[in-house]
Design a binder for these strands. Structure first.
Length: 858
RNA sequence: GGAUCGUUGGCUCAGCGGUAGAGCACCACAUUGACAUUGUGGGGGUCACUGGUUCGAUCCCAGUACGGUCCA
C-alpha cells in the first residue's frame, strides 16, 4: 500500500513539489457555494515593496496553522492573500530609481509616473508572494488582491462617498504632520517619536518692565509667534496677561495670553505661541484669536519672515537665530543637549514639521466609538484579553484622521471642485460636470487597506463571497499594528457593513526577537532571514520553531540552534515513520477492540486521545506554543522513546498484529495533528505511509474517551520507573548499554507480564540466575548476575542519594500531616495525596536501608 | 511624564495556591535493534526584594528596585 522513504529527510527534495501539488489540486481554493461552515481569514496585506521577513513568517505560520486545521475539520476555508500598494513607500522606491537617472517625478508628469510605478510593480513588486509559497501558506491564489485593483478602487470610492455623505469626511485647514522630504501630509501613526538631542533655550521677549522669558526647543520659529502664553493662575505673570510684549528679531508687538494648556512648572512657565507651526499652539491660537504667521515653506526652509533668515533650512536657522539673539543679549539660559521626543517620518526618518495646511479628514469619533463598542459588547474578541486595554486606550482617545496625501501613487481623492468653489464627490460610474477639476491628492494607504476585510470580497456588490465569508473568522496579526491597521479595519468595516465588524476575533501575537530577546534591526546586525533558514533547515523546522514560541501576545526570541532543534524533530518523525513501516505498521482494517490489546498499546491510545483533545483545545484557543509543546513530547517521548521501545519485543515476536495496527493508527493520527504546523514532512510521511491522497483534505482527529485508561497509564509509568532505575544502575556500574546481562524479574501482578518487554529495552537476558546485585523499585525487584563484584562505592552512593531524597520527602509530608491547621482546612484529596506520599517514602526508606545493609563495606 | 507588561536554572521561556518544568547549553557514558540531525544517565533554580492574606505563596494583594513596550 505504500512506497519507500529515503533513509534521511531532505526538505528541499519535497517542499516545492508538494506545494505545487496542493495548489494544482485546488485544495486551497474556497467555494462560496459550499454548504460547509465558513472559516475565513484575510492575510494582512504585505507591502508590494516588501520581502518576507521573520515577522511575516510567524504571522503566516499561525494563520496557516489555523486554516489547515479548520480545513481538516470540515470548514470551507478561505484564506485570502494580497498586497498593499503602500503609497509613500512605493513612490519612494520608484522616485529613487528616477533620481539615479537624475530625474524627478515632476520630469515625467503624473500620468507617466504612475504608469512607471505600475511597471515597477509588474517587474519587481510582490517578491513576497513567491516567498510565501516557500513557507507553505495555504492561501487561495485564485482570490489574490491588490489594494489598487479596479474592484478595490471601486470600494474605496464608494466608501469615501458614503462616508462623506454621512458627514464623516470633511476638509479643513489644520496643523498636520508634514514630511518636508516626502512633501506630503502624514497621519499621527505615520509619525514615529524618537528621543533626539536638541536644545532648550530661554529667550527674553520685550524690554524692561514689560519683558517675559519664554523657553523653547524651537527658537527658529519665533518669527512666527503670535502671542506668549502663560497659565491663568501663575502669580508670576498674572499682572501681565492682556498686555503686549515686543517680539525680538521681527520687532512686532504680541499679546500675552492666559491658557490652561500651559504647564507653569515647565521651563519658565511662559511659552511662545506659534500658531502655524505647532499643534498645541494652534489650539491655543484658535481659542484666543491669535494670528497664524507662516514662516516656512513646504521644504522646511524659512520663508516670508522678511529677515536674513529667509532661505535658510530650519535647522540652520535654529543656530543662526540663537546666535543673533545671543548677540542681542536676549538669551537667558541655554540647555544643550536637551533630550526630548521629536516626530520623524516613518518612511524616511526626516524630522516631521507641523504645518498649517488644508487637508481631508475622517471624523473618527463615531467610528471609534462603534469599534470600541464592538469589543466592549463582546461581538469582537481580542486574544489575548490582556491586550484589550491597549485597544481601548487607543480607540477612546483618537484624533481625527488626516487621509489626504500629496502623492501620486494611490487612490485619487474622488472630489472635484467647480469654478466657484463647488465641491462634489464623484462616485463610481459618475462623472464631474464640465469645468470641474479633481483634487490632486491621493488617499492614505490605510484608507484602502482598512477596507481589506470586505473590499476583497467584492463590496459594494452583494457577492457570494461577501455573503459566505464576511465577517471573517479571525484576524491574526502582531500587536504592533493594532493601531495602524486593526483599528482602521474595525472603523471602516463596521461603518460600511452596517454595523457588522470585520472579524469575530482579533488574535494578536508578538514580535520575533533575536536569541537574547533583543529587537532585530539592520543596525544591530541580528536580523534573521527566514529564507536562509528554510534553505538550511526546511520550512517545517522554521514553522515549528515559530509556532512553538508563539505564546499569545508576547514577543518571542529565536535562535538558529532552536530551528536546528526543530529540524531534529522532523528527522525524528521521519525515522520513526521508517521504523513503523519497517515493522509492518498499518492503517488497514478496524482498530482492534481495546480490551484485546496489551497494556502498552492501551497506554499509547490513551495518551493519544489526551493529546488530541489537548492539542485541539489549545489550537482553538490560539495557544500555539503549548500545543506544539504537547505534540513534541507526545511524538518524541511517548511515542519514540517509550512506545516504540516497549513494542520492539512485540515486533520481534510472532504476535504483533494488534500492535502493528495500533502503531499505524497512532502515527496516522499524530501526522494529522502535526500537519497544520509542519505541513510538508507530515504530507510526505503520511501519503507514503498510508497511501492516502493528501493530509490537506484529511480529517482532523477526534479524541476517543473510551481509549483513556488510567490503569494502563499507571502500569506504564511503573515500567518507566523500573527501566529508568535499571539504566541508572547500569550507568553507575559502568556497564555498557550494549552489554547483555543475565537477569531476572521478581514481580507480581500485571507488571510481571511485561518483564520480557522491559528486558528487551534494558538488554537483559532473562534466565534463572544466581543474583549478585539487584535494583528494587516499589514491589518489583530486578536481579542481575554480574559474574563478579559490583562497584560497591557507586552502588552505595546511588542508594544513599535515593535514601536522602526519600527522607526529605517523608519529612515534608510529616510536617504537613502534623499541622492541625492543614488537617482541619486542606481539602480531603490533598490530605490523601500527602498520606500516600508518606506511605511510599516510608516504604522506600525501609527498602533502601535494608539494601544498604546488605552491601559489603568498601 | 502617563499607561502597561515583565523579573523562574548559563540563555530563551512555560507554569501556577498543595514536593519547581521545557528547549537549547553543560558533564559523563555509549556507535546498540528507526534515528549521532542519536541514545542513556547526570549536574544546575531559597521562582527580584520587603511586607500582607492563607493551614500552606513562585503563584493572590500592597509596596520597592530593576528591565521592556506603547503613548506623550
Amino acid at each position: 500500500m505504500s512506497g519507500d522513504l529515503a533513509s534521511s529527510f531532505s526538505p528541499a527534495d519535497i517542499e516545492a513539489t508538494l506545494y505545487k501539488k496542493w495548489v494544482s489540486a485546488g485544495y486551497f481554493t474556497a467555494d462560496a457555494a459550499s454548504s460547509k461552515p465558513a472559516f475565513s481569514i484575510v492575510l494582512p496585506p504585505p507591502n508590494v515593496t516588501g520581502v518576507l521577513h521573520i515577522g511575516h513568517a510567524l504571522d503566516q505560520t499561525l494563520q496557516d496553522c489555523l486554516s489547515r486545521m479548520k480545513r481538516m475539520k470540515g470548514f470551507e476555508v478561505l484564506w485570502l492573500p494580497g498586497m498593499d500598494h503602500a503609497g509613500i513607500a512605493t513612490q519612494n522606491v520608484v522616485e529613487k530609481q528616477l533620481a539615479s537617472d537624475g530625474k524627478s517625478r515632476h520630469d515625467l508628469g503624473r500620468e507617466a509616473f504612475v504608469s512607471k510605478v505600475w511597471e515597477w510593480k509588474a517587474e519587481s513588486g510582490g517578491a513576497i508572494l513567491e516567498q510565501m509559497k516557500r513557507l507553505g501558506s495555504s492561501v487561495d491564489w485564485s482570490r489574490e488582491r491588490f489594494t489598487m485593483d479596479e474592484a478595490m478602487s471601486n470600494s474605496v470610492i464608494t466608501l469615501f462617498k458614503k462616508m462623506h455623505d454621512a458627514g464623516l469626511i470633511y476638509r479643513a485647514e489644520r496643523i498636520i504632520n508634514w514630511c518636508p522630504r516626502c512633501l506630503t501630509a502624514l497621519s499621527d501613526i505615520e509619525v514615529e517619536h524618537q528621543d533626539d538631542s536638541g536644545e532648550f533655550v530661554s529667550v527674553r521677549y520685550g524690554e524692561g518692565e514689560q519683558s517675559i522669558t519664554v523657553a523653547t526647543t524651537r527658537p527658529e520659529t519665533m518669527m512666527g509667534d503670535g502671542a506668549v502664553a502663560v497659565h491663568p493662575d501663575d502669580p508670576r505673570y498674572k499682572h501681565m496677561v492682556g498686555t503686549m510684549v515686543l517680539l525680538p528679531l521681527v520687532n512686532r508687538m504680541i499679546p500675552i495670553i492666559a491658557d490652561e494648556l500651559v504647564d507653569p512648572d515647565f521651563g519658565t512657565g511662559a511659552v511662545k505661541v506659534t500658531a502655524a507651526h505647532d499643534p498645541n499652539d494652534f489650539e491655543m491660537a484658535v481659542r484666543h484669536n491669535v494670528p497664524f504667521v507662516v514662516i516656512m515653506n513646504e521644504h522646511g526652509v524659512m520663508d516670508g519672515t522678511g529677515t536674513e533668515f529667509d532661505g535658510m533650512d530650519r535647522f540652520e536657522a535654529r543656530v543662526a537665530v540663537v546666535e543673533k539673539l545671543r548677540s542681542l543679549g536676549r538669551i537667558v539660559a541655554e540647555k544643550r543637549p536637551y533630550i526630548h521626543a521629536v516626530g520623524h517620518c516613518s518612511r524616511c526618518d526626516t524630522t516631521v514639521e507641523p504645518r498649517l495646511s488644508k487637508q481631508w479628514f475622517v471624523k473618527v469619533a463615531p467610528l471609534a466609538k462603534a469599534s470600541a463598542d464592538a469589543v466592549r459588547n463582546g461581538s469582537v474578541t481580542i486574544e489575548p484579553k490582556e491586550l484589550e486595554p491597549r485597544y481601548f486606550d487607543w480607540v477612546d482617545n483618537m484624533h481625527d484622521w488626516c487621509i489626504s496625501r500629496q502623492l501620486w501613487w494611490g487612490h485619487r481623492i474622488p472630489v472635484w471642485y467647480g469654478p466657484n468653489d463647488e465641491v462634489i464627490v464623484v462616485g463610481p460610474g459618475e462623472s464631474a460636470p464640465a469645468g470641474y477639476t479633481q483634487d490632486p491628492d491621493v488617499l492614505d494607504t490605510w484608507f484602502s487597506s482598512g477596507q481589506w476585510a470586505f473590499s476583497t470580497f467584492g463590496w459594494p456588490e452583494k457577492t457570494a463571497d461577501l455573503a459566505k465569508f464576511y465577517p471573517t473568522s479571525v484576524l491574526v496579526t502582531g500587536y504592533d499594528i493594532l493601531f495602524f491597521w486593526v483599528v482602521r479595519m474595525m472603523m471602516m468595516s463596521t461603518f460600511a457593513m452596517d454595523g457588522v465588524p470585520p472579524f469575530k476575533t482579533i488574535m494578536l501575537h508578538g514580535l520575533v526577537r533575536d536569541q537574547f530577546g533583543k529587537k532585530m534591526s539592520k543596525s544591530r546586525g541580528n536580523v534573521i532571514d527566514p529564507i536562509e533558514f528554510m534553505d538550511k533547515y526546511g520550512a517545517d523546522a522554521l514553522r515549528f520553531t515559530l509556532a512553538r514560541g508563539a505564546n499569545p501576545g508576547t514577543d518571542q526570541a529565536l535562535a538558529e540552534d532552536w530551528i536546528g532543534g526543530s529540524r531534529n524533530f522532523a528527522t525524528k518523525l521521519w525515522n520513526a515513520t521508517r521504523f513503523a513501516m519497517m515493522n509492518g505498521a498499518t492503517v488497514e482494517g478496524e482498530l482492534p477492540a481495546v480490551a484485546s490489546l496489551n497494556a502498552v498499546d492501551k497506554w499509547i491510545l490513551s495518551r493519544l486521545s489526551q493529546t488530541i483533545s489537548d492539542v485541539d483545545a489549545l489550537l482553538e484557543k490560539y495557544e500555539f506554543a503549548r500545543a506544539c509543546e504537547i505534540l513534541y513530547h507526545f511524538a518524541w517521548d511517548d511515542l519514540c522513546d517509550w512506545y516504540l521501545e516497549l513494542s520492539k519485543e512485540t515486533f520481534a515476536g510472532t504476535n504483533a498484529t494488534n500492535t502493528k495496527r495500533v502503531l499505524g493508527h497512532v502515527l496516522d493520527q499524530l501526522l494529522r495533528l502535526l500537519h497544520p504546523v509542519m505541513p510538508f514532512i507530515t504530507e510526505e510521511l503520511w501519503t507514503t505511509f498510508t497511501g492516502g491522497e493528501s493530509l490537506v483534505i484529511a480529517q482532523w482527529p477526534t479524541s476517543d474517551a473510551s481509549h483513556e485508561d488510567k490503569a494502563s497509564e499507571k502500569l506504564v509509568a511503573e515500567m518507566q520507573e523500573i527501566i529508568t532505575d535499571v539504566r541508572r544502575f547500569r550507568n553507575d556500574q559502568g556497564i555498557k548499554t550494549s552489554q547483555k546481562i543475565p537477569a531476572r524479574f521478581i514481580a507480581k501482578g500485571a507488571i510481571a507480564d511485561y518483564a520480557s518487554a522491559m528486558a528487551f529495552v534494558l538488554r537483559l537476558e532473562l534466565s534463572d540466575i544466581t543474583p549478585s546485585a539487584k535494583v528494587e523499585i516499589g514491589s518489583v525487584q530486578v536481579e542481575f548476575d554480574l559474574t563478579g563484584s559490583i562497584d560497591v562505592v557507586a552502588e552505595r552512593a546511588r542508594l544513599e542519594k535515593d535514601l536522602a531524597a526519600a527522607v526529605k520527602d517523608k519529612q515534608t509530608a510529616e510536617v504537613k500531616l502534623n499541622n492541625d491547621g492543614f488537617m482541619a482546612k486542606a481539602p480531603e484529596s490533598v490530605v490523601v495525596e500527602i498520606r500516600e506520599r508518606l506511605a511510599k517514602t516510608s516504604a522506600d526508606i525501609e527498602r533502601i536501608t535494608a539494601q544498604l545493609a546488605t552491601l559489603p563495606h568498601a
